[in-house]
């Protein structure tokens, strides 16, 4: 019983923490973020497994996490508001070629990150070549190039 409860508590705790900390925490922006995620995964494993290293406990924890994820996916599909609550929505940061600075500050994004995404996806060289840019719920930056690019 405690294995299922421990798995659920840790899963939802991580969900809330990452939801509140912001979408950029999820995307692998820097080495520091990667190290942070690795440390969190180690701490999480200790919290969930505790001193029970049996195969049965591992199987129960895996099933708890997978079924919780499946359950949330089903809820997201049937209730769009729940999806927005859980994951957030896409946020526009460049509209018709104009940067929206207050949104960039809110999401802790700078121009260099937008340019990096533009180069990677479309080979664009400057912000003037971007029509729209969005920050997606998973933290990634997606670019809509301006016409002719």
């Amino acid at each position: 019983m405690d294995s299922v409860l421990r798995g659920l508590v840790v899963y939802f705790f991580l969900l809330v923490v990452f939801r509140i900390s912001g979408r950029r925490t999820l995307s692998q922006a820097t080495t520091f973020d990667l190290v942070l995620l690795l440390i969190i995964s180690e701490v999480t494993q200790e919290a969930m497994v505790d001193s029970d290293h049996s195969v049965t406990n591992a199987a129960i924890l895996i099933l708890t996490l997978v079924m919780t994820s499946l359950g949330l996916s089903e809820l997201k599909q049937h209730f769009p508001r729940f999806k927005a609550l859980l994951e957030g929505s896409s946020v526009m940061i460049i509209r018709h070629g104009k940067i929206l600075p207050e949104r960039m500050n809110e999401l802790r994004i700078d121009k260099d990150e937008i340019l990096e995404a533009a180069r990677a996806a479309h080979g664009l060289e400057s912000l003037e070549q971007i029509k729209h840019a969005f920050v997606e719920p998973n933290g990634e930056i997606t670019i809509v190039p301006a016409s002719g690019n």
Partner: peptide
């Protein structure tokens, strides 16, 4: 498969696979 997984989890919650009320 999903049904079996749910039954396993309910069994675990009830204590049939370790600590719990039925155990």
């Amino acid at each position: 498969g999903i049904t079996i997984f749910l039954l396993i989890l309910l069994s675990a919650l009830a204590g049939l696979l370790g600590k719990g009320p039925l155990s």
